[in-house]
Design a binder for these strands. Sequence first.
DNA 1: GCCAACGTTGGC
DNA 2: GCCAACGTTGGC
Length: 158
Amino acid sequence: MARKKQYWLMKSEPDEYSIDDLEKDGTAHWDGVRNYQARNFMRDQMKIGDKVIFYHSNAKPSGAAGIAEVASEAYPDFTAFDPNDKHFDPKSKKDKPTWYMVDVKFVKKFDRFVPLSEIKENPKLQNMKLVQRGNRLSVMPITKEEFDEIVKMGKAKK
DNA sequence: GCCAACGTTGGC
DNA sequence: GCCAACGTTGGC
């Protein structure tokens, strides 16, 4: 049988790229990840069809904005090769890239935005790396239970 | 804008 | 290999 579906949380600053941008574009490549742990998750563990919580960081407020889906295997992040790109990294070579990215596909925007404060208050979500002190990972695995809980919180209140 | 926490770099 | 200095992340 196929591998179990994995769930992820991916952070983006909405000033840079928000859930609305993704909705408009349909799919986007998740470029600019310059953290080895996050890269390893994308390169080694992400599979097409994995579900992603799209999280707005450095936002007012920060929080979970919607759902996306992994739409490609990892491939070299070409923005690292472009000296004019702000994510340029001279250490990444075309024949041996340091950085990778995946494509993500828009699935849905939450009926209601789930602010970080509510995630922190939810006892079911206390194990997430997101709420642990000082965590700066921009791509992190989450459990199905955590994914489902956030999706539930993102539904409009009756 | 502040600042704590973290990752990376570079001198030794 | 240690560790101080520096740059970045990200909540507030």
